[in-house]
Amino acid sequence: MAVMQIGIIGLGKFGFHLGKNLVRLGHQVLGLDADPEKVRDAQALFTQVYQLEATDKKALEQIRVADMSHMVVSVGHSMEASILISLYLKELGVQKIWVKAVSTDHEKILRRIGVDEVFIPERYAAKQLAHRLVNPGLIEFLPMDQQVAIKELSVAAWAGKTLRQLDLTNTAGVQVIAYRLLGEKNYSYLPKADAPLRQGDFLVVVGNEKRLGELKP
C-alpha cells in the first residue's frame, strides 16, 4: 500500500483517533487545530501538527494543504466553520476532501460545495450496531445495494464436510473469505477447499445479510 499524506482539521475525539489509526496503518498525518491542548496531545503521534485557525484561508495556503492526498474536516458542531473550511480547501485545490457533517442539512450544503465524501459517524455507528444486535455473529454491515454484510459462523452441522462439498457460492450465494480453526486465536485466509471442517471452527463469510441469516452451519 502506498503511503498517503492525509490532513485532519479538528483534533477532537474523532479527528484524534482517526489520525492515530491512520498513523498505525503507516500513513503520514498532518493535524490542525486552534486548541493548544489538542495540538500537544497529537504531537507525539502525528507526523506533523500545527496550531492554527483553519477558517483562515491564508494560513491553510501557507502550510500547503494542497499537497495532501486527502483532507478530513472534523470541526465539531460548527456548521459555519465546516462549510467555510471546505470551501477554502476546494479553492486551494485539495485533491480529496472528506467532511464530517452534523445534520442532513449540513450534509446537503457540503455536497453542493462539491466535497468528495460526507459522513455522519453517529449515523454509521448506529446502523452498524442495529444490524449486529439483530443478527448475532455479524462483524460488519456494508451499506451497498445488495445489503452486503460480513459474518462469523461457528461450524456445527457442517462438521466433516469440505468447502468444496458445501459449494456455498452456488448454493447459498455467499463467499468464505477467512477461517479460524478450533483453539486458534488468529484468522487465516484463502481457506483450503478440500480440508474437512471441524465442529467449533469459525468461518468468516460475506454476502447478502438475509442469506447469511438463513445459513445453518
Rank of each mutant, 00 (worst) to 15 (best):
V23F: 14
K90R: 09
E117Q: 11
V3F: 03
F141Q: 00
M4A: 11
Q146L: 03
L190R: 15
M1K: 13
Q5N: 11
I109L: 15
Y187M: 13
K57A: 15
V49A: 00
L45I: 13
D105H: 13
S154V: 13
A2T: 12
E80N: 14
A81G: 11
F14Y: 05
S103G: 08
S154Y: 13
D41M: 13
S188N: 11
L110Q: 01
G114E: 02
E53M: 09
E107D: 15
L215W: 03
D33L: 03
E209N: 12
L87S: 15
N135F: 14
K185R: 11
V72E: 05
V206Y: 04
I113K: 00
K210P: 12
P121F: 03
S74T: 13
G137F: 07
Q43G: 06
N186I: 12
A125W: 07
I9A: 11
Q128C: 04
W98T: 15
A172E: 06
P196F: 01
F14K: 01
I97V: 02
K38A: 07
A156W: 05
V94F: 01
V3N: 12
A149T: 00
Q147S: 11
N186Q: 14
S78D: 05
E214C: 00
V94H: 04
N135W: 11
V102P: 12
Q51H: 07
F14L: 06
V99S: 12
A172P: 11
G76E: 01
L138F: 02
